[in-house]
């Protein structure tokens, strides 16, 4: 195996006196699709947000390729350029159209020309199936469409890894599929992905590895089929028993 894209070592994070992450270690290789499962409060979202330092780790190390992410000397903006993130609440910029959302960071961060940014935006929006919605404002789109715009927005930056933070949790059931299909295409295309989700079907189909977290630590990990069908840990068994 080559050098991991993301390497996490003894990651700890406390909010005040509450310790949410109690020492997490994880390597993510290029092309891996890692699905992170666990009950709410297990620290999975916090871990994901530490990767691009939306949360400041309390201690431990997070490496992105050759960069120590949580080093004061690191230009975090350069890391974030290459780490795409999609949020549960979409967070599209409401004052910009779908195309405008996808173009903004290309223009301001990558300094692409307007024509180039526009070309990339149109290409990415077509890929997520929104070729006919480019000039719509977020409020004129359904939740599923908004989330696909958010994915296109992240992909337009040519990220080396994508972070998905419960991206289907806020969607009506009938809209979930469109978003998952986009993610599946992305996974099959070889994108390195860290996915926090409750979608077991997606995890089974696409994930190369399933990680089960509870109480701020990784309890169990392995091939999805193994983790789902033959869970070793009692807490994993309990959790899977509940959501099935």
């Amino acid at each position: 195996m080559g050098k991991p894209v993301v390497r996490i070592r003894d990651l700890r994070k406390s909010f005040g006196t509450l310790e949410v992450l109690k020492g997490v270690d994880m390597d993510v290789q290029k092309g891996e699709v890692v699905v992170i499962l666990g009950p709410s409060g297990s620290g999975k979202s916090t871990m994901l947000r530490c990767v691009n330092r939306l949360e400041e780790p309390t201690s431990g190390e997070i490496w992105f390729e050759d960069t120590l992410v949580n080093d004061a000397k690191t230009n975090i903006n350069q890391v974030r350029e290459h780490v795409g993130m999609v949020f549960q609440s979409f967070n599209l910029f409401p004052h910009l159209t779908a195309k405008g959302n996808v173009m903004l960071a290309q223009r301001k961060v990558l300094h692409r020309s307007r024509t180039e940014a526009e070309r990339v935006a149109e290409e990415q929006l077509r890929k997520v199936g929104l070729g006919d919605r480019m000039d719509y404002f977020p409020a004129q789109l359904s939740g599923g469409q908004q989330q696909r715009v958010a994915i296109a927005r992240a992909l337009a930056m040519d990220p080396h890894v994508m972070l998905f933070d419960e991206v289907t949790s806020a969607l009506d059931p009938e809209l979930v599929r469109g978003v998952l299909d986009v993610m599946k295409d992305l996974a099959r295309g070889g994108m390195t992905m860290l996915v926090v989700t409750h979608e077991m079907g997606f995890a089974r189909d696409v994930a190369t590895r399933a990680v089960f977290m509870d109480g701020g630590v990784i309890v169990e990990q392995g091939a999805p089929a193994d983790v789902f069908d033959k869970p070793q840990n009692e807490r994993t068994q309990d959790f899977l028993g509940h959501i099935r």
């Binding site: 939306l54 903006n77 974030r80 993130m85 949020f87 967070n91 910029f93 960071a105 301001k108 992240a154």
Partner: peptide
């Protein structure tokens, strides 16, 4: 919404941007 700032930052934009 603070998600707006997070989304912008996650795309590599600086705080002033």
């Amino acid at each position: 919404h603070k998600g707006q700032l997070e989304a912008a930052l996650s795309l590599g934009m600086t705080y002033p941007q």
